[in-house]
């Protein structure tokens, strides 16, 4: 790889009060890669993911040590604008969480708060482009004024992805985006991730080994707050270096 990594985490530790949830983790996420985080429940995948857009700030007891650089810039620096950071690093949650607004307003939410659209026509275009990229446009183009919460679970999740990409982020974080969805909706999301790859750096947390194998180029295995192994996905699944990784992916524990 010739480009410098998009995200560089250096020696990151996260504490909730006095308990350590992440223990000295360093990891690089490349510009146009999909990185999967796997590991047993409670090992800190979500916690680490949430440090990347500073969503841990909303947890009063959380504290982050170490350094996280986005394009070489320390995102925990005092002069970092969190609002801008989160516009650059979008997030999709485990449970689809559309706002109780119309489909249109859901997607227009980000562009509106960041003042990205000068005129209504611009906004319309942004909404359409985002919905198209999220593969939802054809399903909803005739009912943009319906409530976003009236969509099916899979459609809601794609709406949330459309909402996230509407502000043109550079990185998209996804925390188990398919765990509340059926296999067909899951397949659609995975297909979508394939299409988004290259345009955004994507980090996805998943409990589904096949999913990690299907969508990602690199996989990070976490265990008890530590990063056990970080390698190209094919290596992790065919030829893991660490005993613990092998045990986990072969289903021996976790």
């Amino acid at each position: 790889m010739t480009f410098p990594p998009k995200i560089q985490a250096r020696d990151v530790s996260v504490f909730y009060g006095d308990t350590r949830a992440i223990d000295h983790v360093s990891i690089d996420v490349a510009q146009d890669n999909v990185v999967a985080f796997i590991g047993p429940s409670g090992c800190g995948k979500s916690t680490f993911l949430r440090t990347l857009n500073r969503m841990n700030d909303t947890v009063a007891s959380a504290r982050v040590d170490g350094q996280i650089l986005l394009d070489g810039e320390d995102i925990y620096a005092p002069d970092m604008d969190v609002v801008q950071l989160r516009a650059r690093v979008g997030m999709v949650f485990q449970k689809p969480n559309p706002f109780p607004k119309s489909i249109y307003e859901n997607v227009a939410y980000g562009p509106r708060i960041h003042g990205l659209a000068a005129a209504r026509a611009d906004l319309d275009e942004m909404v359409e482009r985002s919905l198209r990229r999220a593969g939802l446009w054809d399903e909803v183009k005739d009912r943009l004024d319906d409530s976003g919460t009236a969509l099916s679970g899979g459609q809601q999740q794609r709406l949330c992805i459309a909402r996230a990409i509407a502000v043109d982020p550079e990185v998209i974080l996804m925390d188990e985006p398919c765990s509340a969805l059926d296999p067909i909706a899951t397949a659609k999301i995975e297909e979508l991730i394939h299409e988004l790859k290259g345009r955004y750096a994507i980090v996805i947390v998943t409990h589904n080994m096949q999913q990690a194998a299907r969508v990602s180029q690199q996989t990070a295995f976490f265990h008890l707050g530590q990063l056990v192994e970080f390698a190209p996905t094919s290596d992790i699944f065919t030829n893991p270096r660490e005993e613990r990784t092998r045990d986990y992916i072969t289903g021996r524990y976790g």
Binding site: V83, A87, F93, K95, N97, F99, G110, V167
Partner: peptide
């Protein structure tokens, strides 16, 4: 109001008051 709603908005870069 579900916390997910709030997190969703904050993750979009909205401020608390927004």
């Amino acid at each position: 109001v579900p916390a997910a709603m709030r997190d969703g908005s904050l993750a979009m870069g909205a401020t608390t008051s927004e």
